[in-house]
Amino acid sequence: MTEHLSRGCLAKRNSDREKQMKKVIESTDISKAFGSTKALNDIAFSVDESEIFGFIGPDGAGKTTLFRIIATLLLPDKGEMKVLGMDCIAGFKELRKNIGYMPGRFSLYQDLTVEENLNFYATVFGTTVKKNYDLISDIYSHIEPFKKRLAGKLSGGMKQKLALSCALIHKPKLLILDEPTTGVDAVSRSEFWAMLARLRQHDITIIVSTPYMDEAMRCDRVALIQNGSILTVAPPQKIRNGFSRKLFMIKASEKYKLIIALRKYPGTVTAYPFGDSVHVTFSDDSIDESLFRFLSKEGLSKVTAVETEAGIEDRFLELMKKGATV
């Protein structure tokens, strides 16, 4: 165990040295259309070694298409995609040995047991479970007690862990996870992210897509993606800091009435429902007594307002709005 740990640390140090020179993914102006629908428009980004890079965006934003291009499963119409220094089109055979891909629907054989699934993927990738056990043990140990169970009989969280184990079994340099947390309950989701964080020790670069804005904080860097275009790429905290105005969280007894009233208020720039409150920006970036007077005149009681830090979703909304008006 200690030996394994020290080896991990050594590898980490080595990788730090190389980090500057090595890009794991370099995407240059990738576009892809299906018939008349444009799935991706001029996607450009790069991913560094050993980073967890997230693609955050709603369904239909183009995340799956992009991931399939990275995984050599689709050809882009235009642009260049370099993965691990190889071209995705010309070098697809070599690349396929070095990437681990977990598609949106966990690609498991429902009629095979947990163990059989894992063994199958191990042989297909020319390795054995034994050889790479230390890599997957952190994840696989959760489901090992059920190894004789059919994969189809597992819960969502367990399927997700098994699929991740299968994608990792050949010790890939790049792990591509397409919406790994969709359809999985909150507890399993949070466990899953903790596992990904620990995988970094093993020198594995991870790209992951998700429609959940709140998961952005778990990534080193994220790209916000919408309608086939990248809105921004940055570390999550930086994205939050990019919010251009002061944001206020306002609550009142009747939410719907509050939204309507706030939209009527002359100083309001935006007002969106956000959980049990309304997130509001004002043209003068401050609130004064006149707002409270206005709201009480509109018949609202128990009004509270505090300044709050913008979340990823607030910034996403702002960027979407900008894209719509520009």
Partner: peptide
């Protein structure tokens, strides 16, 4: 249909 073909395709098979 079950999406396993995607993984088979990206495997060295």
């Amino acid at each position: 249909e079950f999406g396993t073909m995607e993984v088979l395709l990206v495997s060295p098979l």
